[in-house]
Design a protein around this nucleic acid. Structure first.
Length: 119
DNA sequence: CGTATGACGAGCC
DNA sequence: AGGCTCGCCATAC
């Protein structure tokens, strides 16, 4: 039993490997909230600076950064992803077919969500 | 306990 | 094809 959905979300996001990106909806589905994409976004926003959660690797289903245009967060997220090898096109979009995270195996996912006290 | 908000998503106009 | 609205889930006030 976990404390909150946030913890579950953070755990899954931590499993996203560098150079790969996941969508809010995908994370939501992995934690058991198929329609909780917004909740995932809420969780990302609640992440404190210095957290080990790679929030940068979470983007929307369009393959674009959800931050408001001109917002510092947008540039930061993009820079972090590009530093990992993720390429943005002229429209500022990421090719999810190439950089999209495949997700976790059912077994690994189960283990992940079962870890009540994972550091 | 009820209302409002939000780094989303899919559908409709 | 592009833009707008409604729906969903959880947190905050």
């Amino acid at each position: 039993m976990t404390d909150s959905r946030f913890e579950q979300i953070y755990r899954v996001v931590r499993c996203v490997p560098p150079g790969k990106v996941a969508t809010y909806g995908q994370i939501a589905q992995l934690v058991g909230m198929a329609r909780g994409a917004r909740t995932v976004g809420w969780a990302m926003r609640a992440i404190p600076e210095g957290s080990d959660v790679p929030w940068q690797r979470v983007i929307n289903s369009r393959g674009t950064i959800s931050f408001q245009p001109g917002s510092p967060g947008e540039a930061v997220q993009r820079a972090l992803l590009e530093a990992e090898g993720v390429v943005f096109d002229e429209q500022g979009r990421v090719d999810l077919k190439v950089y999209g995270w495949a997700g976790l195996d059912p077994v690994e996912l189960n283990e992940l969500l079962n870890s009540t006290s994972s550091s």
